[in-house]
Design a protein around this nucleic acid. Structure first.
Length: 295
DNA sequence: AAACAGGAACCAC
DNA sequence: GTGGTTCCTGTT
């Protein structure tokens, strides 16, 4: 990996990178604050706005510095993980090969646990576009403004701000019945009863048990938080899309989501979550289980 | 414009 | 612990 910084333009180039496809990374349902703006994918991460471009094994980050790279982006984009090795392992399962081919360049981001927790509470019984819109409105209403290249962006709000949020204002962001869950969870986190940062150092089962104590967090949402922000590679979030694709590809007797989760943990082990990402992207791309749209 | 899509809580038993 | 019902909003 060769890194080249231009301090005048704020452009950082990382060369010699493999397995990085922004479209697949940002549109596989793991993150909600990345949008295509005509030039690249622009995202708000922590207190930073960055634009991401990828071309011929060169990753370009606009509005980034070398220091940011070491402190934030290296870990955020999971650049120290050898995806070639993960793909090789998963490809031993012939059923996965086609899904991996479609979703080439997917990476599991290492996101902020707090933002991920709230985002996936919002995700319950919800679609990606609506989740994104709701998270954006919550950030606009409760988060701090940051500006870049003539546009305004908003940080994801702090624990304190959401713990004290006015319920009507929260609801006006379009979160519906999840509003009280968001506030309740924020208060639970603020109380210190659950220490999100500590979950990273706990094993999968213990961390999951803690997350399940948050209102609005069930098995699927907990697995998303564990996988996308707490480095728990064995987490295998099962939603309707995964249910459909697993039924189609593995045609197992899996009546319930719990059965699918157990099947995946047994079959894929500590890289089950990576398999899940390929399968999810594949299922959505193929519109599995959906009738062809009438026109 | 009624139907639909999408996980968790809650209350029975 | 299992089964059925309800929660909210944007899209078709």
């Amino acid at each position: 990996m060769l890194i080249e910084e231009n301090r005048d333009t704020g452009v950082l180039r990382i060369e010699g990178l493999k397995n990085f496809n922004p479209k697949h990374i940002f549109e596989c349902g793991q993150a909600f604050r990345w949008n295509w703006d005509g030039q690249g994918y622009v995202g708000v991460v922590g207190d930073k706005v960055v634009r991401v471009l990828w071309e011929r094994s060169t990753l370009t980050l606009e509005n980034a510095t070398y220091d940011d790279f070491n402190i934030v982006w290296l870990d955020y984009f999971d650049l120290n993980t050898d995806y070639g090795r993960i793909i090789e392992k998963l490809s031993r399962d012939p059923i996965l090969v086609e899904a991996i081919r479609h979703g080439w360049g997917i990476r599991i981001l290492n996101q902020d646990p707090w933002e991920t927790l709230i985002s996936f509470i919002i995700s319950a019984r919800n679609g990606i576009d609506r989740i994104k819109a709701t998270v954006e409105r919550i950030s606009q209403k409760f988060g701090e403004k940051i500006s870049w290249a003539g546009r305004d962006y908003y940080k994801f709000p702090s624990i304190d701000v959401l713990a004290d949020a006015d319920e009507d204002e929260l609801r006006s962001c379009g979160c519906g019945y999840r509003g009280p869950y968001i506030k309740g969870t924020a208060q639970l986190i603020r109380s210190g009863e659950i220490n999100l940062d500590a979950l990273k150092y706990m094993d999968y089962e213990d961390a999951k048990e803690q997350l399940l104590a948050c209102p609005g967090v069930g098995p699927k949402v907990a697995d998303c938080i564990l996988l996308f922000s707490l480095r728990k590679g064995q987490a295998f979030p099962v939603d309707v899309w995964i249910g459909r694709i697993m039924e189609e590809l593995y045609s197992q007797e899996m009546k319930e989501f719990k059965d699918i989760r157990e099947f995946a943990e047994n079959r894929f082990g500590d890289i089950a979550g990576y398999a899940q990402q390929y399968l999810f992207y594949y299922a959505r791309e193929k519109q599995i289980g959906k009738a062809p749209s009438k026109r």
